[in-house]
């Protein structure tokens, strides 16, 4: 259970000016829920994720996970960054094992788990390769394995598929759903793509900029497991349209915050 209450973040720019990246963000996330976050560029999505992860400290408000206020990154949390950020000197397998190595929890069982994760995402034959020998999509899959390897309860993903082409991107979303189905976790997923947000999320947090805040939280009533077929569902269309309106015509939808 994640409780985000009245979170706000003010950055002090180099010229001394203040940027309010986030104001009054409150959000509760249940265990094993997938919550996606969409919003225009610069509305504070990454900032929200970084605050929840404990990588930065909030200017105001708090993040409480399982009754504990977040002050630094937790051991039961995995992050997938926008860029794969694999270490170029390490093999794919070593990259996936990196979190365990850093936490001093590396053992034979963990190595087996890493290997089966890699096999599951189709990288079984590339474990001993270096990152630069892999395509962008393959690298991002390895990065997802790295975020899963220490069996975190919570996964934070900041536009993990942002750099991928449309085809790979669709494939990866389905793959992520498959992984989640096999082993349920709480996932917080930032994306620029509205269909992706709706396909993945139980709820979609729509954010608006200047200052960054939650415009509305859209509940997606699609049944699980979901796949490409789900996109044909009228509910899917309805959710996408609602979100599109919130983002492109904020004035029309203003006041309908709790609709």
């Amino acid at each position: 259970m994640i409780e985000v209450s009245d979170l706000s973040q003010v950055f002090v720019a180099e010229d001394g000016g203040k940027v309010t990246a986030l104001t009054d963000v409150s959000l509760d996330i249940a265990d094993n829920e997938i919550v996606t976050i969409v919003g225009p560029s610069g509305c504070g999505k990454s900032t929200l994720l970084r605050l929840i992860s404990g990588l930065i400290k909030p200017s105001g408000g708090s993040v409480v996970i399982d009754g504990e206020t977040v002050k630094e990154p937790r051991a039961d949390m995995g992050i997938v960054f926008q860029a794969p950020t694999l270490l170029p000197w390490a093999t794919i397998l070593d990259n996936v094992l990196f979190p365990l190595k850093m936490m001093g929890r590396l053992d034979a069982k963990a190595t087996e788990r890493a290997k089966s994760l890699l096999t599951m995402v189709g990288l079984g034959d590339f474990m001993q390769h270096r990152p630069r020998q892999l395509s962008g999509g393959m690298q991002q899959r390895a990065a997802i394995c790295r975020a899963l390897v220490h069996q975190p309860k919570l996964i934070l993903m900041d536009e993990p598929f942002g750099a991928l082409d449309a085809l790979t991107r669709e494939q990866m979303s389905i793959e992520l759903l498959r992984i989640w189905n096999a082993d349920k976790k709480t996932i917080l997923f930032v994306t620029h793509s509205i269909p992706e947000a709706v396909l993945l999320g139980d709820r979609v947090v729509v954010m608006s900029p200047r200052p960054g805040r939650i415009a509305e939280i859209v509940t997606v009533p699609l049944s699980r497991p979901r796949d490409f077929e789900s996109e044909e569902d009228p509910e899917f269309r309805r959710c996408c349209n609602r979100i599109r309106n919130l983002i492109y015509n904020p004035n029309l939808t203003a006041g309908a915050r709790h609709a």
Binding site: S53, L55, W89, A90
Partner: peptide, 27 residues
């Protein structure tokens, strides 16, 4: 900074950060 952030996100100590990130990067 992404690499440093990665190390922080997995709670790497300063020594581990040096040995596993900074030194290899500096090679």
């Amino acid at each position: 900074p992404e690499y440093i952030e990665l190390a922080r996100s997995v709670r790497a100590s300063r020594v581990r950060e040096l040995l596993s990130i900074r030194l290899p990067y500096a090679i």
